[in-house]
């Protein structure tokens, strides 16, 4: 079970996966927007997206949960 957390203050620009989706290592889970850049957040290991903690347009702080991959 891997908790994917935001590394920095950002807004959620796109959510690229749905709950229940199978992801491979390196797949984009969400795309954050910060420092005028679109920063993809990638799955570190293959697995299933158990839950998504954010929606497009949300603002996240450093350390906030984005998704859980099992």
């Amino acid at each position: 079970m891997a908790e994917i957390r935001a590394e920095m203050v950002a807004s959620v620009w796109k959510v690229a996966v749905a709950e229940g989706a199978e992801v491979a290592e390196g797949d984009t889970l969400v795309i954050l927007e910060s420092m005028k850049m679109e920063i993809p957040v990638l799955a570190e290991d293959p697995g299933t997206v158990v839950s998504l903690a954010v929606a497009e347009g949300d603002v996240v702080q450093e350390g906030d949960l984005l998704a859980v991959v099992d």
Partner: peptide
């Protein structure tokens, strides 16, 4: 590495 923290 722009992938992490936008390369900041």
């Amino acid at each position: 590495n722009p992938l992490r923290l936008g390369g900041c």
